[in-house]
Nucleic acid binder design. Structure first.
Lengths: 176, 176
DNA sequence: ACGGGCATGTAAGCGGTTACATGATTCG
DNA sequence: CGAATCATGTAACCGCTTACATGCCCGT
């Protein structure tokens, strides 16, 4: 369901093709919600059937641009207004941490170092994107400002995870 | 796949029934990886077929206790050693934040307040569980110490999200 | 006696991934 | 001309959720 509303919300910015939407997911939304292209194309077909979007243009290479309909805009705004939010987080990294006692101490140290490296790198990426947005490199539209908030969450989340990995590395020295 | 290894790892602590495992997921692992009981029962059947676990006891009310086999223990340790980790995080809360520009300013303020309340509450819960574990209320085994690390991650993650929600609330005042 | 929790499962359906498949266009 | 990228889709499969279904045991 989330993907459906995400596509509608992206189309609320203006017309785009399945390919465009796929790219936007990869570039901007993969932090918090990855989506593959077959899933996107499938959902777009369903949205057309339900008349929440429509084909507004056909370009070269069979490119089809979709636009949101007034009903579609209503539906996505309704979704944003509703407060039934599934707040579950899924993280394989943290799931594994529950079972660290099964690992050899040296393997665990290596593992946590790798985790730290990954997290700090991600945090760095989002901090830089955030800084670029603060310098208004992408413009100053409400959409950009919203994206700035999402990026900030990414930066803070991955910073917290990096600090945790460092802390856990110290703690893990006497697990047994 | 992750669930499969999680079940094996839990059974590495000692025999348990499907019901027990379901409870443990709900109590301790739902922070980072929720699992429903039909999924757990299904996976347990497959693990028996693959001879990674076996029924070691049958109690009242059709209760079946499973124990891990040596092969099973090997498989789960191998999983922990491998470093092909899917580090994607999925968060509907943050996904929504990308589309905040579509919301009415007052609705958005209300929404972010609710988000803050949820996150701070969660953070509080994990901080308290962490503190209890530090007072050794559950004992001092390697398993408890591992769980302590996971709980700490939960506390840090939700604290970061709460701080973000507060920050976003201020920022969101001039989105348009 | 009965209500609540223990305990296990099945079935349908959905959301999501991976692999397969095809062809057009642009650029060097 | 050929490689990379644009662009769209299908099919099989898996993981996971929701709803349904059943019955036993324990405490009050």
């Amino acid at each position: 369901m989330v993907l459906r509303y995400g596509l509608l919300a992206l189309l609320a910015e203006g017309p785009a093709s399945g390919y465009d939407l796929s790219q936007r997911f990869r570039e901007a939304l993969s932090i918090v919600w990855p989506a593959s292209h077959p899933q996107i194309y499938g959902e777009l077909s369903r949205l057309v059937q339900d008349e929440l979007i429509e084909v507004v243009d056909e370009g070269p290479r069979g490119r089809k641009a979709y636009g949101i309909t007034p009903e579609g805009l209503g539906v996505v705004k309704e979704w944003l207004r509703s407060n039934e939010i599934d707040r579950t987080l899924r993280s394989e990294s943290l799931f594994r941490s529950f079972f660290f006692w099964l690992m050899e101490p040296d393997e665990l140290q290596k593992h946590l170092t790798a985790e730290y490296d990954f997290f700090i790198k991600q945090a760095e990426v989002y901090k830089q994107v955030g800084a670029a947005k603060d310098r208004s490199e992408y413009g100053d539209t409400p959409q950009i400002k919203s994206a700035r908030l999402t990026v900030e969450a990414g930066a803070r989340l991955y910073s917290a995870l990096a600090e945790w990995a460092e802390w856990a590395k110290r703690k893990a020295k006497d697990l047994n």
